Amino acid sequence: MDAAGTDDAVLRLGAMPAHADALCVFVHGRGQSPEEMADHVIDRLRNSSAHVVLPRAPGGVWYEARAVDPLSARSASQLEAALDAIDAAIDLAVSEGAPGDRIVLAGFSQGACLSLEYVLRRPGRLRGLVAFTGCRVGGALRAQAATFLDGLPAYLSCGDADPWIPLDAFFEAAQDVARAGAALRVEVFPGRVHEVLDAEIAVLDAMLEQVAAGRVASGTRREAAA
């Protein structure tokens, strides 16, 4: 995709905001950059009518702890700041004319973990979730998620021997998303290293097309039943 704009905080690609038929926010992983995600993922998308915003973590790290570590006060604060950065990326694009009712949130590795946390902690803005190789952040605090996603399309993928995301943690995240009521698709790729395959990118492409055409349900917030 051609660049639509950039600044110190975000990289913006694809269609200009006011001309886009969907908005994709893509979150990079630990030690990565928006430019790397542009090379490895966004430039491989067929869809060129979406506006893509890639937020940038200070120092390339959204939070210092591993996702599977218990959530400390420091990592909890870093996590909230990272979720705020996603909101800020959405707000920036929408303020420039991007469609605020057709948003897909996606990410890889640490960015996938953040995307999962965002959809479960701050639901209501999204029309799709794509998490390439992620899990919940904080381990023992998983059960705190108490929101529901009514039919929100969600795609979670991982390798069966990924060096960073244990498969049991990946499946626990998938269970949380499923319990929250999302329309969930899960794929585990045998032998896949820490990367994003063409088959995974094709799912993001298809979701962007479906969101742009208005063929997906909206995620809504409601209280958990007692």
Rank of each mutant, 00 (worst) to 15 (best):
G139F: 07
T6Q: 14
E195D: 14
G31W: 09
Q32W: 02
R66S: 14
G138Q: 08
Q175D: 14
A81K: 12
Q78G: 04
S72Q: 01
A85L: 07
C158G: 13
V52A: 06
S115N: 06
E223S: 13
L208C: 03
L208F: 01
A9L: 11
A226K: 03
S48Q: 15
W62I: 12
V68H: 07
L105I: 10
E36A: 13
P163A: 11
R121W: 01
A50C: 09
A161Q: 14
D198I: 00
M16F: 04
C135N: 13
D69T: 08
A3R: 11
G134K: 12
V53A: 01
G128T: 01
A143P: 06
S72T: 15
I86H: 01
D101Q: 11
T220W: 00
R30L: 12
G60M: 09
A88Y: 01
A145E: 13
P55C: 06
A143N: 11
P55W: 03
G124D: 08
E187A: 14
D2K: 06
L167Y: 04
T147F: 06
G191C: 11
Y63A: 07
W164T: 06
I86C: 03
L129V: 13
A140P: 10
L120Y: 08
V61R: 13
A106C: 13
A81M: 08
L204C: 06
V203S: 00
I86P: 01
S218M: 02
D69V: 05
G59V: 08
N47C: 08
A20H: 05
D8N: 09
L114W: 02
G59L: 01
S77E: 14
V188C: 10
S95W: 05
W164F: 14
V119N: 02
G214S: 05
A140K: 09
R44S: 04
V193Y: 04
Q110Y: 05
M207W: 00
G128H: 03
Q175A: 14
M16I: 01
V53I: 12
L45D: 09
Q144E: 15
V68T: 14
R12T: 14
D150W: 07
V216C: 05
D43L: 02
E200Q: 09
V25K: 04
I86D: 02
S49L: 05
E96K: 12
S33E: 11
S48P: 00
A154Q: 10
A226D: 08
G5L: 03
Q110P: 09
A18F: 00
A161P: 03
E195T: 15
R30E: 05
L79S: 05
D198Q: 05
V68K: 04
D176E: 13
V216L: 03
A9V: 12
V216Q: 06
A112W: 08
L208I: 00
Q175S: 12
D101G: 13
T6E: 15
L11F: 02
R122Y: 04
L105Q: 06
P17R: 06
V41Y: 06
R125I: 04
V216R: 05
V177S: 08
L149A: 12
A217L: 06
S72W: 00
S48F: 00
L126M: 08
C24G: 03
W62Y: 05
I42V: 15
T147E: 13
G151T: 11
A22Q: 07
P166R: 10
L184F: 08
V53P: 00
F148L: 13
P34H: 05
M207V: 00
E80C: 03
V137N: 06
A76T: 02
Q110R: 04
C24M: 15
P99G: 10
S48T: 15
Y63M: 10
